[in-house]
Simulated scan of single mutants.
Amino acid sequence: MLDHDTDAEILKFCEQLALDAGRRIMEIVHEGFSAELKMDSSPVTLADREAERIILEGLRSRYPQIPVVAEEEAAAGREPQNVGSVFFLVDPLDGTREFVRGGDDYTVNIGLVRAGVPVAGVIYAPARFALYSGAEGGAWEIPADAQHVAKDRRAIQVRSATEPLKIVASRSHNTPETDEFIARYKGAERMTVGSSLKFCLLASGQADLYPRMGRTMQWDTAAGDAILRAAGGITRELDGAPYRYGPGLTPGDEDFANRHFIAEGRLA
């Protein structure tokens, strides 16, 4: 890490990388693209690869000593051998299924983890021109213009929950366990949205809970979790402990696979 770069400065740099990646994604939308299937049968497109290239070139140029775990590199077997206690988690196009279907619920995710804790995160939804950002000191929603240039930022924070709760769930990856969890909250309003925008709904005070009882990867969640924590919320293990990041934390699964978790705003 550059000696003079604080988390806030890292965040600003990652904001620009996310905007640049989002701009390239939208160029590819207008050019036209096709989808391929990876080994796990999930889709991948030129937009995923181009966005990841932009982000990795930027991070590795400015922060060559901080390892980067990125989805498409990991899929190709190119994960760092030892990430240490500080590393980036990158999903260059979260919500590729939504992207392929022509929806707008897809995002660019860049998260910084330190000692297992997501300390800075950036999410950009290029089809919505909406950038979210957070680190110690606060969280923000930042509109972008048609050229994917950031405009004035607005501070966001989680809301104090009132009945009925608003519970956000995945649009494309629902599970019976998630349905069972939501059913505990009588009268709760269920909201569905794709990609890491679920965390953004909590961070901006539009929802209260996000239970995820299905398989995800750490690059899917680190950026949104960092923004949520910066906005006053938290992501927890099912036993209530704060959620942690790093390799090998999910027994019997891939190094950066997630456990089930519950993200929450201010419930008390």
Rank of each mutant, 00 (worst) to 15 (best):
L56E: 11
G58K: 01
L59K: 03
L59S: 06
L59H: 08
R60T: 05
R60Q: 11
R60K: 15
R60G: 04
S61F: 01
S61Q: 12
R62M: 02
R62G: 03
Y63C: 03
Y63E: 09
Q65F: 15
I66K: 03
V68C: 09
V68I: 06
A70R: 07
A70K: 06
A70G: 10
E71T: 01
E71I: 00
E71R: 10
E71M: 08
E71C: 04
E72K: 00
E72F: 13
E72L: 13
E72I: 00
E72H: 00
E73G: 09
A76P: 11
A76G: 14
A76Y: 02
A76C: 08
G77C: 14
E79A: 07
P80A: 08
P80T: 03
Q81M: 14
Q81W: 11
N82L: 05
N82K: 13
V83K: 00
V83G: 00
G84E: 15
G84V: 12
S85V: 08
S85L: 13
V86M: 07
V86S: 10
V86E: 15
V86N: 11
F87D: 10
L89W: 03
V90S: 08
V90M: 05
D91A: 07
P92Q: 10
P92F: 05
L93V: 11
L93N: 11
L93R: 02
